[in-house]
Design a protein around this nucleic acid. Sequence first.
DNA 1: GTCTATAGCTGGATAGAC
DNA 2: GTCTATCCAGCTATAGAC
Lengths: 213, 213
Amino acid sequence: MKPDTKQRLLDGTLETVRRGGIAGVSARSIAAAAGVNQALIFYHFGSVEELLEAACRQATEARVALYRDRLATVDSFGRLLAAARELHEAERAAGCVTVLAQLLAGAPGQPKLTAAVADALESWAAEIEAVLGRLLDGSPLAEVADVPGLARALSASFIGIELCEGVDPRAATAALDALDRLSVLVEVIDELGPAARLALAARTRKARGAHTP
Amino acid sequence: MKPDTKQRLLDGTLETVRRGGIAGVSARSIAAAAGVNQALIFYHFGSVEELLEAACRQATEARVALYRDRLATVDSFGRLLAAARELHEAERAAGCVTVLAQLLAGAPGQPKLTAAVADALESWAAEIEAVLGRLLDGSPLAEVADVPGLARALSASFIGIELCEGVDPRAATAALDALDRLSVLVEVIDELGPAARLALAARTRKARGAHTP
DNA sequence: GTCTATAGCTGGATAGAC
DNA sequence: GTCTATCCAGCTATAGAC
């Protein structure tokens, strides 16, 4: 047995998706990237779809676990921003979000892959949700922030930005920098205290009433 | 000549991408959706990639023109929000953003398609940028908002959310609702006036200094 | 402009030797 | 577990009749 053929195939899958997108994926291209015989994909995983599924699950689990420790130390928006910068640099090398974005696009019509991608999105969202909930506890922002929804919005946004990176790197960088800059705003509001909180709460109720009378 | 075969192929392309994703695209599937002979794709467009390119350009141009008039009437964040709701409903039917997201994922290795998708992204971003610039002019938010970057971030975010819709509709809805709710915050800040503007400007400079000493 | 037919290729997947 | 060889479906693209 070659030094873990299964793992080489999983790694080769990620590399293939990263380099050629979901459209560049085939049993032959993956086997070539992994330096492994093409027939072994079907011996070890049954089908290309199941290999994609397994690669998605393994990569997500590993990355989420890796970032969980880092995110657990975050206790202010300033530190969250610093962590986000580190993670973004790490992602640039690993390309895990890019792969997820491509699998997301390739999911239609592939039930097992769809399930794996949905679980992966949920893992990321849950992680972000935990940090966000911790940071917003007691902040005036808690009045206008729907934490679970915001976590999903953030996950989806990064996926969109990573996809854009493929066709227009400058636009992607501009988008990330703009979000970066907005964080100043978040910090300021966060420090306003209880009076601002009450004002926002009143405004939120008013806006709600206006939209659903 | 059948009633505009070229247009039927362009429409069939959008429908095929919407229904089966970029992975479901082939000359045969598009021709079937268009109710047209497969060979006509090559007669009229030269290749499948060029058909995708043409469909991307036409759909983007039409949609952007359609929304431009609507967005031109927007002169407050409240109205922007109302417009966004309308546009999102219209998108649910037309699926133009979904198609763009899929083409974005399928672009790697296809130079002409890559160029078309990049142009499409730029068209959307320019449109959003114009509205955002108009709204933020004079607002305290202008101090922390990088308008061109934010426009790109918003475009990319919606693309990410539309992709997620395909595997987890609930998460996509939660994300959109959360962004909706945040708009209350934007309105409040927007009404704070010149004092808040100066405070934000000071904080922005401070934060800048800290990040790039 | 549109159709049929088909060349030529690449894809997923399997059989069977080792 | 791994390899070679191969089947067959589906794909792009073209040739040529109408």
